[in-house]
């Protein structure tokens, strides 16, 4: 097994172009587990730890450009304001040690349906982009096009993930995850939710309940319609139990989970509905308070 250690981003892209089967590694929190379990025998490992720009983030006020290797611990400490949903998801990742090493780039690269970042990224809206690069150039991949199947994403063999671009939150965001213990657990299922008052939309993201992370499109459309038609964006008034209930049902319907060692399909659907109702309620309560205090 070859071990490639590029010092710069350009060297990394050149190495990946030359060794398209090389497996990129940053925090190693996923790659090393797979290697230890002998799931993969990659011909080469491409170590990105010397490419320090990957651990940087910038915020232009509208969008956060989050380097692929910024560890979860720093997302929690430094980005809870602009990216609250992602920060909440980051808090549920593994142990402190894992959060010190792992980052969103690895989650996207692995593209596991159980990755904790995905529901938060999906909920953050349709203007989330994965910045992928190769010696051929850079593309901005909309998050909705990124996930293709179980542990498959749309990256080309010579591409590396450089950053992810996430709009700065303009409304409340929440993230909930089910695990069978109270910490250090892979999601049985997870749900991300965000209100986007500026463009009058809402965002959802379902984790661990379909072959890929996915959006609950009908639930989003239903809620957007209700909020717009009833003037609730302006009033911040109560949603009503039936709206919350319906939203939960639509989220549930959007999932296509399986039975596995972590949980049953029925339970996953049930829990998604509960998490959808709760996260919507928390966000809407916060939003209502904001509206009332602004008034």
């Amino acid at each position: 097994m070859e071990f490639l250690r590029p010092a710069t981003w350009d060297e990394a892209l050149a190495a990946k172009a030359e060794n398209p089967t090389a497996l990129p590694i940053a925090g190693g929190t996923d790659v090393m587990v797979e290697l230890n379990f002998d799931v993969h025998r990659p011909s080469a490992i491409l170590d990105l730890n010397r490419v320090t720009e990957l651990t940087e983030w910038t915020n232009d006020g509208a969008v956060v450009r989050l380097g692929a290797s910024v560890p979860y611990a720093r997302i929690i400490a430094e980005l809870s304001g602009p990216l609250p949903g992602l920060a909440l998801a980051a808090r549920t990742v593994g142990s402190p040690q894992i959060r010190n090493r792992g980052g969103v780039g690895g989650n996207l690269g692995a593209a596991s349906p159980a990755g904790d970042s995905h529901p938060a990224l999906l909920a953050a809206g349709r203007d989330v982009f994965v910045e992928a690069a190769s010696v051929r150039g850079t593309r901005m991949i909309p998050i909705d096009d990124f996930y293709l199947g179980v542990k498959r994403n749309c990256l080309a063999a010579d591409e590396l993930i450089r950053a992810v671009h996430v709009p700065v939150a303009d409304g409340p965001q929440q993230f909930s995850k089910i695990g069978t213990r109270n910490a250090m657990v892979i999601a049985v299922c997870a749900f991300g939710f965000a209100l986007h008052p500026k463009n009058g939309t809402v965002g959802t993201g379902i984790g661990s309940a379909a072959p890929t992370p996915r959006r609950a499109v009908e639930a989003e459309e239903y809620l957007r319609g209700v909020l717009t038609e009833r003037g609730l964006w302006e009033s911040g008034g109560p949603l009503g139990a039936e709206v919350v209930q319906r939203f939960g049902e639509l989220v549930k319907a959007a999932a296509s989970p399986i039975d596995d060692v972590r949980g049953t399909a029925d339970y996953r659907r049930h829990a998604l509905a509960v998490m959808a109702r709760r996260t919507l309620t928390w966000c809407w309560n916060d939003y209502g308070r904001q509206i009332r205090s602004a008034a």
Binding site: R91, T92, S176, K177, G179, N182, A183, R278
Partner: peptide, 13 residues
């Protein structure tokens, strides 16, 4: 709380 920082409940249920 049950679920702890997985943020599944703020006291509900």
């Amino acid at each position: 709380l049950p679920g702890a920082l997985s943020n599944t409940s703020h006291g509900e249920g």
